[in-house]
Design a protein around this nucleic acid. Structure first.
Lengths: 258, 258
DNA sequence: TCGTATGCTGTGGCCTGACCACATGGCCTG
DNA sequence: CAGGCCATGTGGTCAGGCCACAGCATACGA
């Protein structure tokens, strides 16, 4: 009796899809913008004529995709709030697709290579073009490199986490949120593989030293506006690591396999 | 009385996260592979000691992310089945993030440019390298071009849909599922903007003719193994369209805005 | 008067039980 | 042997309840 089924008596869409599309429409129309509160679950439920559990299913999806943040209790911070943080959703998506064999790990690495090259190219060109105006502050990235230089006091896992953060920082500095979140997701999805490869290294000290050196070289190439060499270094940087860990033979990917 | 709370009496994870992580663990361990059936919702519920609604929230997430397909009824096709189709999830994610202003449309276009260039580069290089062995069949893509040539009998929307399919086909031919699904998501997320830009064109006939010509040129460049010109053409192809629709002035993106 | 304590209220989180539509597969009947 | 019928198990959905939690207003005490 709650739902009025005049018009579209048979709604082919499932109830939770109705909720999802309703919210998407509100977003597209600008009726909902980041920072706004969604109506309470019970309100949304009666407003749309669906059960609260269906509303919750839709909200769960939005939460995983990084569109909303939920909080119990009362007050301004409670409820479901639009946040629009893509990285979390991208990470979940890629991690699960890799787990479910929808994504081949080699393709993840190759894609990361493509995006990473695009990022440093863009940064280098921006640096070259803006020598006079804005000086292109790479401080965030450099600080991470400094943290990685605390030799001996940084575990393998910590080092690799900082490494990931460094590459992510570069992506964010390029100003492209799409690429940045993709990079976050790609890296996140193969995190466990990266860690698992460490024992295969001949010498962690040697490898980490090389990685640190390459990082500095990337920064230097960007600052000097040398896009081409930045691209080459980052290429060798990533390819080299995976080759050393025997994680993937990047030289002969997908030559003739299905 | 159903849930036994020995060990980990306070589970900080929310109930639906427990379900999600359980399934993810099964995927990673290979206990679940594409084609397999998930346990029934009620079984999963009692097995994990959570309510069925929580199980459903997790399944909903998996469904939107493209990991499972659900079907009512009984028989071999009913229930939740692992499918691992990333495109749908990528599309949802990007579409909603664009709607929620988490992604700037200009960044979406720029990212598409990067990926598209990588795709045609890879295809061209593969074509050049495999002149003797496998002849690199572009048939799928070419058939789409043929369909677009039915001049006058293809509406704007249909033409643009075929255009999208063409670019997606190229991505899939490159063999990289990650890039292919990203391209699908990127294109999908700006679908409405692309369509909305059509009225801004000086002449649809002129533009569509140019697009068709450029498509053929891309194919030709790939087949001749000319990666560089393939990249240039695809770049001009995409940039040109958006410039013509005044949808975005690709020449001066993000020069000094926040 | 001021500060604190206390309870009210509204939020999401979760569970239970119930019903429905549906698809299958076996059983029963003609 | 063929065809129809129903038992069974599935996801889809709803209603209602309880809980923990956070804020806020109110009342009370210093």
């Amino acid at each position: 009796m709650t739902a009025i089924d005049t018009s579209a008596s048979v709604d082919s869409r499932r109830a939770w899809e109705v909720v999802l599309q309703h919210i998407e429409a509100d977003l597209l129309a600008g009726r909902l913008v980041p920072g706004d509160h969604l109506p309470a679950e019970r309100a949304l439920s009666s407003e749309l004529g669906v059960g609260r559990s269906s509303v919750r299913e839709a909200l769960r999806v939005l939460e995983v995709l990084g569109l909303i943040r939920t909080q119990t209790g009362s007050g301004p911070q409670s409820g479901a709030i639009i946040i629009a943080r893509p990285s979390g959703g991208m990470s979940s998506l890629m991690r699960l697709q890799v787990a479910a064999q929808g994504f081949d790990v080699r393709d993840v690495v190759k894609t990361r290579l493509v995006l990473e090259a695009a990022v440093v190219t863009e940064l280098a060109e921006a640096s070259a073009a803006a020598l006079d105006s804005a000086p292109l502050d790479l401080g965030d990235a450099v600080r991470l490199l400094d943290a990685m230089d605390a030799d001996g006091r940084v575990s393998e896992a910590e080092f690799l986490a900082l490494d990931a953060a460094f590459h992510l920082a570069l992506a964010e500095l390029s100003g492209n949120a799409v690429i940045a979140s993709m990079m976050a997701g790609l890296r996140n999805s193969i995190e466990s593989y990266v860690l698992a490869g460490v024992p295969n290294l001949r010498s962690w000290a040697e490898t980490s030293g090389r990685l640190r050196h390459e990082h500095r070289a990337i920064i230097a190439a960007i600052e000097s506006g040398d896009a081409e060499s930045a691209r080459d270094i980052v290429n060798a940087h990533i390819t080299g690591y995976y080759a050393e860990t025997n994680f993937i033979s990047t030289s002969e990917q997908r030559t003739s396999d299905g």
